[in-house]
Design a protein around this nucleic acid. Structure first.
Lengths: 208, 208
DNA sequence: AAAGAATTGACAATCATTTAACAATATTGT
DNA sequence: ACAATATTGTTAAATGATTGTCAATTCTTT
């Protein structure tokens, strides 16, 4: 599990496995073979076995994989058994939508604070959390053991804000700003570039 | 440009090139070599040249690439010169946020309609567009030459809705629902699975 | 308890992507 | 106008990812 050379391609597939296993589990299915799962997910059985074997074998010859067990193991690999405190920086459209929509708490991500630079929003409540001025970020991160910052601000401020977060030892940034952040390697950055995604879709229309 | 075997990896990198070239262009820079761009973007110069050559050479030996020209060529490849009518299905947190946040119009994506199944939202205006009942989707798509549907509804309804969209000849679906849609190959689906992204981030924290 | 069927984990083979190298060509400076 | 420099496009090599195969193992049935 602590293996450091798992390829990005494999990691990117884990959440999808987790989703399908959750569904199977919800349907009361106890075991599944790589072949049946491969048909369900539209990938090769070989890839499924190869992927799981990156983390040690979870299956049993002649039997397949126990759904519940595999589901829980993947959760562990993904770190979903750990709780993480997070803050949202940028209480605009997207920040508010994520706060309301993402169901963070159910997955062990605890929204501890929301910040904005617009004074009109100070004091506004979102899911019981009061919007604070961005000037308070640094103290707040240090005082509340914040692991994750969700960055939903325009690109102009994003780079500077990321540098600030680095200084107060944030562990990870979920970046929705349309810019590449420059942070030390030890800090996890997961980008969600929505306009890139829309351009890929546009490419698909143009070239199919 | 009509080449059909461009790898997904290459296409996924195009929006990033486009973004950097847009910035360079904004700074008034006229030309750039693959080497300079590679330093800027933190990739290899070889990859840049290889990527562009998938679509024909845009550079000139001894000179490099003309920023303005390359920028425009990538826009064409991505189909950004074409206008597309789109509808948003699901006027909840995320649907509203995207409508307000994405600046669709500036990029040639025209929001023509917004739909929801919640009667409380009928008639509500978002950016001048009135929310309509989902029952009207099929007629609306046909009557207004809609190319793209943005799916921001819970997973339960998403699969059925996608099937409905297929029947009225939608070209592409930008899918934010946490489920894999089953549609014919000719229809472009671009998934934005936010919880998958958050899990990848979680993995990053757990394994670094 | 034994035989047959199922299925994994590991390895090998194939396929795809990325990087390196370099000849061909254009630019720049003298 | 020439030599030196820069830089692409292309081909080859190296690396990485996916798929196929099969012995080893477990399960299931009789």
């Amino acid at each position: 599990m602590d293996d450091k050379n798992i390829s990005q391609a494999v990691v990117a597939r884990l959440p999808r496995y987790y989703r399908y296993l959750g569904d199977l589990r919800g349907s009361g299915i106890e075991r599944i073979s790589s072949q049946d799962l491969s048909k369900l997910m539209n990938v090769t059985a070989s890839q499924i076995r190869q992927d799981f074997n990156n983390f040690g074998g979870f299956g049993q010859q002649g039997y397949g994989y126990n759904v519940e067990y595999l589901y829980n193991e993947i959760a562990k690999i993904l770190g979903l058994n750990e709780k993480h405190n997070l803050i949202i920086i940028g209480a605009g459209n997207l920040g508010q939508a994520l706060a309301n929509y993402m169901n963070f708490e159910r997955r062990g991500f605890i929204v501890k604070g929301i910040f904005d630079k617009n004074p009109d929003l100070y004091g506004k409540e979102l899911r019981g959390i009061v919007v604070q001025p961005v000037e308070r970020i640094e103290d707040f991160v240090r005082e509340n053991a914040i692991d994750i910052a969700v960055l939903t601000i325009p690109k102009d401020g994003a780079v500077k804000t990321a540098e600030k977060l680095v200084r107060c030892n944030i562990k990870a940034i979920w970046n929705f700003a349309h810019v590449d952040l420059k942070v030390p390697e030890s800090i996890v950055v997961e980008n969600v570039h929505l306009s890139d995604s829309l351009m890929k879709l546009s490419y698909g229309i143009a070239n199919q």
